[in-house]
Design a protein around this nucleic acid. Sequence first.
DNA 1: AACCTTCGCAACCGCAAGGAT
DNA 2: CATCCTTGCGGTTGCGAAGGT
Length: 279
Amino acid sequence: MGRTTWFDDAGLKKGEWTAEEDRMLVAYINEYGLGDWRAMPKRAGLQRCGKSCRLRWLNYLRPGIKRSKFTPEEEEDIIKFHSLLGNRWAAIAKQMPNRTDNGIKNHWHSCLKKRLVRSGIDPMTHEPIVNVKATSSSTTSSRTLTSSSSSYSSTSSARLLNRLAALISSRKHGLDRIKNVILSEPRQAVEEDKLMISSKEEEEVHGFMEIDDNLISTTSLDALLFYSSTTTTAGFVAAFDDCSLVAPYDLYQSDFYHETDDQLDRFLDIHSLAQEDLS
DNA sequence: AACCTTCGCAACCGCAAGGAT
DNA sequence: CATCCTTGCGGTTGCGAAGGT
């Protein structure tokens, strides 16, 4: 299988790699090592762009890459890590030795995602696909939403939490201070009449959510630091006591986890802390 | 046997972060 | 400080193989 070979305007070859090209790339890297992907193809005698060489090396030629079928255990791991990390394929790949981000991503899209849907699991939230409106005694002001509507917010929330996590971790911000401000509390169902968020607060939250992802991940959660939910989704940041690792975890669960004013205050507090750190 | 659909996966593209200048 | 360049990531596409009708 493979893509049709063609040449772009700059005369660079695109499409399927030949065995000879593979051999040339491997021989060059074995002799001169990695680095400067832009210059590499010319030096290696390849009519390819650096990007193409890099991709070929990382996803196919690099030693130790496992291209066999995913085992049931690996599939379970992918699902587990996806529930923790979302579509961060590179981060997931780091947890799975010898598997590439591309391979994991392909397997997710072609197989695992569909399998979850068939099992009645929302592949974005990893929660049962349910229409919470139907089961909720909601009022018009409540923020209950169906699972399927959470995609964007879920990702954004995870990004925000990642950013906060990274800030805390990279600066070794005093964990005690964070804890004092945030005060973790057991997750519990929240009455719907506590769900109101003013439009100004919501704007602030969403504004901050634009900050880009900066992930530091781990697979186990030792200490709950921060629980937050925005209008449609929930998540929390957890950290080890030494602040060395911080993990985001998307917790969207239909109408179970919701924002309270108290939680929002804490959310904004850590927002301020993060801003202080930035400045 | 021919056609169609789905699957699996390599490879491409656009975008953004971060370093270099 | 601004701009450019390189690298890395995630989404998407293209295509042969496999399976179904």
